[in-house]
Design a protein around this nucleic acid. Structure first.
Lengths: 218, 218
DNA sequence: GCATTCGTTTAGAATTTTTTGAACGATGCG
DNA sequence: CGCATCGTTCAAAAAATTCTAAACGAATGC
């Protein structure tokens, strides 16, 4: 939007020029679609997914593949792929119309349902995998710690402490997710506090040499 | 992890074979680094950033650029760029050692501080921009709604309703962020509920014709 | 059966992101 | 000064992602 051409915007009381109003609506819609494109990008989806969702979200009625191709100036193949991706995420659903071979799509407009879906799916795909891998490492390290001595035991214990910190965090993430999805209260003060305690405890049991570790900062 | 080779794992009471222990430590460390690489990727950073953070997080003492180049098998330029990126995010800091020209780096190990930093920075960079753009559209639409009539007014109101839904969400996001950073309680039940109310209200006032709106697409 | 309309798939093109390697400036030291 | 060490920068390469256009198959109506 160019500032230099802002003149007509400064005349909000001008007669309801239909062409101009149409244009306003169109512009708002475009802005919105672009914004959601960026959001999607930002959250690790791709731009088109966000734009598609936005287009559907702003449409009072379901759209067909070709509608979206026109609206977003993309290719059919691309829209097809991305709309199905949105479906898998539970963000969009198909509508069947009687005696109409076309597929119609509409957005999941209950945003909390949409977000819950996203978060749960991501939890399933990523978070839990990482937790598993982390837990595996922690168990291995505990065995090492039990058997080893000296240097190695120290390293193992240090690794253990740090990995536990992350595990606590991931578990809190799960907790947060559950509350978000099912509704409930979350207390961040205690979450922060509990993670600090791990740090302090474990540090206490470290030997002198390790103590120096974080001191040399200053 | 292959099940077929699990034999030596089943002998936790074997003599503390130093080479083997070393290897265990090494493996845990590698796993951890890879995991954080994936996490970083997932959250819109890049893999190397996560790996660098992980390497520092698992190191009892600060590392130099070259240490990290070796550890992660990357190039100096790449590590240089990404470590500075981590610095800007407040996830890593430099340590100066007396009479040593090298730069040493250490991870911010208070994970909540780290996360707070990330979230706040992201809020600054993205969320607030989107909110601004959205607010701009909403204001424009309100003017249109006031002036327009019939078809156009209906479209404007529909857009308004939907955009308000998203704005509510973004505002809740801000709220959530603040509680996370400063510590406090968040109630998800009321958040969900309040977003639903918008939907219901506005829907009630839609006229039958509204269905036809974007029909001209055909 | 034949032509048409849809949606999906796919190979490769285009674009974006990440990585490398070499050049460079700055610093320290003999 | 001359040489060595460090970290940064940048152009080009490599890799990954996204997009297109055409081909295809399935369904529909004639």
């Amino acid at each position: 939007m160019l500032e230099s051409k802002a003149q007509d915007i400064n005349q909000p009381t001008s007669p309801p020029d239909s062409a101009n109003l149409q244009e306003q609506l169109e512009e708002s819609s475009r802005d919105f679609i672009n914004s959601l494109g960026r959001v999607a990008d930002f959250f690790g989806f791709n731009r088109l997914m966000g734009q598609l969702y936005a287009a559907l979200f702003l449409s009072p009625e379901p759209l067909t593949l070709d509608d979206m191709v026109k609206r977003l100036d993309s290719s059919k193949g691309n829209v097809s792929i991305n709309i199905r991706s949105l479906e898998r995420w539970g963000l969009v659903r198909q509508i069947y119309k009687w005696a109409d071979r076309k597929n119609y799509y509409e957005a999941e407009t209950d945003i909390w349902t949409a977000i819950s879906g996203i978060l749960q799916e991501r939890e399933r795909r990523e978070n839990s995998q990482i937790l598993r891998s982390l837990t595996h490492s922690i168990e291995a390290l505990e065995k090492v710690s039990a058997v080893a001595s000296g240097q190695e035991a120290q390293v193992a214990d240090f690794y253990l402490m740090r990995m536990e910190m992350l595990r606590k965090l991931l578990q809190f993430g799960d907790h947060l997710l559950e509350k978000m999805v099912k509704g409930g209260q979350v207390n961040f003060a205690t979450a922060r506090h509990s993670s600090k305690i791990v740090d302090a405890n474990k540090n206490g049991f470290a030997e002198p040499e390790i103590e120096v570790l974080e001191t040399e900062v200053e």
